[in-house]
Design a protein around this nucleic acid. Sequence first.
DNA 1: CTGAAAGCGCTTACAG
DNA 2: CTGAAAGCGCTTACAG
Lengths: 330, 330
Amino acid sequence: MITIKDVAKEAGVSIATVSRVLNNSPKVSEETKKKVIDAINKLGYSPSFVARSLATKTLKTNVISIFVPFFTRDFFVEVLRGINNVISKSDYSIHLYNVEKLEDKEKIFTKEVFNRCDGMILVSFELKKKEADFLKEIGKPVVLVDSFHPDFPSVYVDNKKGAYIAVKYLITTGRKNIAFVSGAIHDPLGFMASYKRYEGLLQALREANLDFNPRLHIQTGFSWEKGYRAGKTLLNRGIPFDAVFCTSDIQAMGVMSAIVESGLKVPDDVAIIGFDDISDARYLGLSTVRQPMTEMGEVGAKILLDLLLGIESSFTHIELPLELVIRLTS
Amino acid sequence: MITIKDVAKEAGVSIATVSRVLNNSPKVSEETKKKVIDAINKLGYSPSFVARSLATKTLKTNVISIFVPFFTRDFFVEVLRGINNVISKSDYSIHLYNVEKLEDKEKIFTKEVFNRCDGMILVSFELKKKEADFLKEIGKPVVLVDSFHPDFPSVYVDNKKGAYIAVKYLITTGRKNIAFVSGAIHDPLGFMASYKRYEGLLQALREANLDFNPRLHIQTGFSWEKGYRAGKTLLNRGIPFDAVFCTSDIQAMGVMSAIVESGLKVPDDVAIIGFDDISDARYLGLSTVRQPMTEMGEVGAKILLDLLLGIESSFTHIELPLELVIRLTS
DNA sequence: CTGAAAGCGCTTACAG
DNA sequence: CTGAAAGCGCTTACAG
C-alpha cells in the first residue's frame, strides 16, 4: 500500500504539505502543489479513508443507511425506488439493511451499524420508546417513511382512512358481508398497516350498522399464494360473503384466483378491493387503494438530504394522500 | 465520545487489557475480564471501527458492494432479490450503487469506493480491459452477474440463444414478418443483452431464409410506455408484420396494448413474445423467454461469499438455462 | 496475566 | 509557504 509518506518522499516535501494539497489548503505555492500532484499521479496514491476519519474525527461516511423489510412486498421495492431516485443524484451512497426478523432488528440497533453512516431512513418501523431514545442518543438524522413518531421527521399515509373509504365504497354499492384478508394484526415486528386498516374497516362497518364476522377475517402473509389460500379457506368455511377487502394487491390477486376458480363471478358475486396499486393491479383491472409508494420514498429521502445539509426547517411530518381506484373488480 | 481510555480508567486496568478482552484474547483472567466488561456496559462503550481498522490494517468492512443499474428494469429487482436472499443470511451488509449513466460509472471505478468494501458484485457489466485491470489491481473478490469475463467468476445466460429459440418458434408457427422491439443495440454503458438477442434473432431468420426488415426494428427503453409507443410506431409505418419479439416483458406489454387498441388480434393477427418472465407476464398470459433472474443473483452472491472465505475453487463460470414459455400471445 | 510503548495513515495547530 | 510533532482510538509485540 502506498501512503502519504511515499508521496512526500517522491515529491521531496513533508507529509504535512502533501496533506495540505490533499485538503486544498490555500497556503501552498502552486509550484510545490504541482510537484505533489505529479507524485500522487505517478504513484497512483489514494488517501486512506480510515486514517483520515480517525485524524479528523469527522467520520463523514457519505453513506445513508436504509432499513427496510427488503423485497418481501412490492410496496418496499417502490419505496426504495423513490429513495434511490433522490439519493442517486446526491453524493451519498446507499447502505441497505434487510429487516425481516426480530433478530435482524436487534442486529441493527447497535452503535456499530449507526456509526457507519451519516443518516438513515427507516421504512415502516414503529419505533418503540427504547429504540427512539437510542436513535436520539446517536444524534444522527433519521427519517421515518411509512410510519410516524413525534420526535422524528416522517412521511406516511393514513392507513385507517384508506381502508375506511374502500370498505365504505363496498357498503355503498350494496355489499353486506365483507371478508377481510390482512397481514398479522399484531405483527411481531410492529408493522401497523394491517392493524390500522382493520380499524378503518371496523369503523366503516360500524357506521353502516353492519357486523363484522371474525370468521371472515384471515390473517396471512403478503404473497400471491397466501392470498390464494386465504381465498380457498374463506370459501371452505361456507359463510357467505359478497366482498373481500385485502391489505395488499398481491393478496387480492391470489384471493381473486381462488374465487374465480370456484365458479363465482367477480365482481357480480364477490367484489374485491386491494391495497397499494402495484402495476399488476392495472393490468388485471383490480380495484384498489392507491398509495404513493415511490413518492413516499422520494419525499423521505429529500427530507434526509436537507437534514444532512443542516436545514433544520426540513424537520416535518408529511401525510401523503391515499386514493380509491375503482376498476373492474368492484 | 467514550473511548477505550475511559473504559480502562473505569475498570482500573490498562488500555491494552481492555483491547484484549475486546478481541477475546485468551490471556486475560476471568476476574479482570469481568471488570472490563462491566465497565464497557456501564459506559455504553462501542469500539471505534475506524481506529480498529487503522490499527489492524485489516480493513475488514463487512460490506459487499453491489453495482447495478438500479430499478430501471424489473430484471434488476429480481437479481437484487436473489443477491439479498443469500447475503442477508451472512454477516455482510449491502452497499448499493446505482449505475445508470456514464458518469456514475466513472464515479464508481475509484479506489475510494472499492476500499470501502470486502468484495463486489457487478450486475450486467461488460468490463472493458481498463476496468478489468483496475479491478485486478484492487485485488478484492469480484463476481459478475449477467455478464462474462474470462478473468472473473461469473454467472450468466445465453442471450443470443434465448432470442434464437423464441424467434425460431415464431417462424415454426408460421410467422414470416417479425418485428423486433429492443433496447439500444449499441448501449452507451455497454449492456450487451439487446445486441446478443439481436444476433439470435438474425440467426433464426437466416436459417429460415427469411429477411429482416430494419424498418421493423425499434430500439427504445425498457418500460411499458416505450413499448406502447414502439407498437404505435410499428403500426404507423404501414409495413405488415405478424409477430413481435421484444427484449423484455414490460416492453411486450406496451406493444400488446398498442396492437390490441388498433383492432388487431393477439395472437391471431400478431404474435408477441417477451423476455424475462416477470410476474406480470404470468397474469397477462404473455409468452416469453424465462430467465432465472433471482437465481442468477443467488448464485452470484454465493460465489462471492465463498471467495470471501478464501475458497479459491469457487472461482467458476456458470451458465444458467433459459426457457421458452408459451402462453396465450403466440 | 498485565502494562508501557510503538505504530497504523492521516490532520492540524504551532513555530518559523 | 513549509516542516516537526502531537494526536485521533485502537492493536500488538515486547518485557516483566
